[in-house]
């Protein structure tokens, strides 16, 4: 009788199946969770790289985005229009300010010439008035000045002295005085202004020449003059204590 071999205990079919199932379970979970971990990392990297990539957005999101962008474009266009209008307004305002300053400067210069604050020069006419019989009175002198101013005289110089807005001529015939300074004949009256206008005004019938010529001993000669020098006011600018400008 053969010695009995020790019988190898074969695992039961149920325990083997159990082990196989456990191995399969572990393996399947291992693989699936591994895949899941890999996909999660890939997804995170992809999303991080995408950022605001439009390709990753849905149609609705893109539609909303387009709507928002359209509204933003409208807002920016409106803002651009407002800014353009504001810029144009500022430009005109600036130009207007510049024009005002320019006008004010021109007015100031005109006033300086008018009041004699500054010396001036210009073309005009020269009147040589002789009075051999001393018939010229302060009345005629005022008449001369008024006629010349009416003819457009911008500045009048009489015997080298400026006729200001507040100049006064007085005295008796033959002893006339301009601001207390004697006016000796022949008078040299230099007038700055439009030559043609001045000449036609003083020479017109019934004008200054014909009027003064009627006086005995009075001779008047009129000629054009270039570059007449007008001295400034000799006794300073007048200060106004009572008359104030109205704003």
């Amino acid at each position: 009788m053969l010695p009995q071999q020790p019988r190898r205990v074969r695992p039961s079919s149920s325990s083997a199946r159990h082990r196989r199932n456990r191995a399969l379970t572990t393996t399947s979970l291992f693989i699936c969770l591994g895949v899941l971990g890999f996909l999660v990392v890939v997804l995170m990297r992809t999303q991080g790289a995408l950022g605001n990539d439009l390709q990753a957005r849905s149609v609705d999101e893109l539609g909303r985005l387009v709507g928002m962008l359209s509204q933003e474009v409208d807002r920016l266009q409106q803002e651009e229009t407002d800014l353009t209008i504001k810029a144009i307004g500022s430009h005109y305002e600036l130009r207007s300010d510049t024009e005002v300053v320019t006008r004010e400067l021109e007015t100031l210069k005109a006033l300086e010439v008018l009041v004699g604050a500054v010396p001036s020069r210009g073309d005009g006419v020269r009147l040589l008035i002789g009075d051999s019989e001393n018939h010229l009175s302060s009345y005629e002198m005022c008449l001369i000045i008024n006629e010349l101013r009416s003819a457009g005289a911008e500045a009048i110089v009489m015997n080298g002295r400026r006729i200001d807005y507040d100049s006064g001529i007085g005295g008796k015939p033959g002893r006339l005085a301009l601001q207390d300074s004697p006016l000796v004949t022949p008078l040299v009256v230099e007038v700055v202004g439009d030559r043609e206008a001045l000449l036609s005004a003083v020479k017109m019938p019934g004008g200054l020449v014909s009027m003064l010529s009627q006086l005995p001993g009075v001779e008047i000669d009129v000629e054009t003059a270039a570059d007449i020098s007008v001295p400034p006011r000799s006794y300073g600018l007048r200060t106004f204590d009572y008359a104030v400008p109205i704003d």
Binding site: C32, L36, F38, L39, V40, V41, V42, R45
Partner: peptide, 10 residues
């Protein structure tokens, strides 16, 4: 471990 391996691989 599979999950960690997948993350590491990724």
């Amino acid at each position: 471990f599979g999950l960690l391996l997948g993350i590491l691989l990724g």
